[in-house]
C-alpha cells in the first residue's frame, strides 16, 4: 500500500467519513457478537459475498485505529479495468490483488495475502469468490483453506451478513437503504486438510445464518 501521507489521509477520510456515513448512518448495521472481532492483526475476516458494499461493511466493524492494517482481498480482473479504478483499489480501498486462476499455472495466488498476514495485517476475504445470487450462500472455494493451512496460527473469523444484497445487489447501480444484520462467529484455525477447514468454515457460516430470522426476499 502507498506510504504517501496525503494518500493515507485520503484513505482515512474516505473510510471515516464516506464509508462510515453510508454504512452506519444511511444504511445501519445490527451487529451480533461484536466481542468476537479480533483486537489486532494478524487475522482473517471471512464474509459471505452479496454486494460491492460487503468489504466496506466488514471494515466499518473495526476501529479506525486498525484501518492501516485492514486489507480486502480482491480479484485483479475486477478492479484493474481502468487506471483510476486501479489507483483507487490500491491506495484508497487498499486491496490485496489476487489473480484468478493463477493457482492452476503453478503459482501461489495468495502469496501477497500470506505476506500481509506476516506483517500483522487483517485481511477481509470472501470465500465464495464472487457475489452471485443475492442473499443466498454459495459453496466456498478452496483458497481460504490453503491460506489457513499456510498460516495455521492466524485466527479466521466467519462474518455472516444479510441485507447488503438488498441494498446494492450485483448488477445494480441503485442504492436502496436497508438495515443489515452482521453476525460474527467464533474464530477458527487452519488444518492439515484444507477441505476439512473449508467445510468447517461453511458449517459455521450456515449456523450463523440459521440463527437469524430473515425476512422473505423473493
Amino acid at each position: 500500500m502507498n506510504k504517501n501521507p496525503l494518500t493515507r489521509l485520503l484513505r482515512f477520510l474516505f473510510f471515516a467519513v464516506v464509508v462510515r456515513g453510508v454504512i452506519l448512518v444511511v444504511m445501519g448495521l445490527t451487529v451480533r457478537n461484536r466481542q468476537r472481532l479480533p483486537d489486532d492483526g494478524p487475522a482473517v475476516l471471512a464474509g459471505n459475498h452479496n454486494s460491492n458494499l460487503d468489504a466496506l461493511a466488514i471494515m466499518s466493524l473495526m476501529p479506525l485505529r486498525l484501518l492501516p492494517k485492514l486489507r480486502p482481498v480482491a480479484a485483479m480482473d475486477y478492479f484493474y479495468t481502468s487506471s483510476f479504478r486501479g489507483w483507487f483499489a490500491n491506495n484508497i480501498v487498499g486491496i490485496i490483488p489476487v489473480k484468478r486462476g493463477s493457482g492452476k499455472e503453478g503459482g501461489n495466488p495468495l502469496q501477497l495475502a500470506e505476506e500481509a498476514l506476516d506483517r500483522g495485517e487483517i485481511l477481509v476475504i470472501f470465500p465464495e469468490g464472487t457475489r452471485g445470487e443475492p442473499e443466498t450462500l454459495q459453496a466456498f472455494k478452496k483458497g481460504i483453506g490453503h491460506l489457513a493451512r499456510a498460516r495455521p496460527k492466524v485466527p479466521i473469523i466467519p462474518v455472516f451478513m444479510h441485507g447488503l444484497g438488498k441494498t446494492l445487489p450485483r448488477g445494480s447501480m441503485l442504492f436502496v437503504p436497508f438495515n443489515c444484520i452482521v453476525s460474527v462467529g467464533e474464530k477458527l484455525y487452519g488444518k492439515e486438510s484444507y477441505d476439512a477447514f473449508v467445510a468447517e468454515l461453511e458449517g459455521s457460516m450456515t449456523a450463523l445464518a440459521e440463527q437469524e430470522r430473515l425476512p422473505v426476499w423473493e
Binding site: G28, G163, K166, L174, N179, P215, W217, E218
Partner: peptide
Amino acid sequence: LKEYLSLIPTRRIDRELLLFAY
C-alpha cells in the same frame, strides 16, 4: 421506515420503488 422495510417480507421487483417510499 428503514427498520420497518428491513423487517417485512419484500419482493425483489419492488426494490427500486422503495426509494419512492423514502
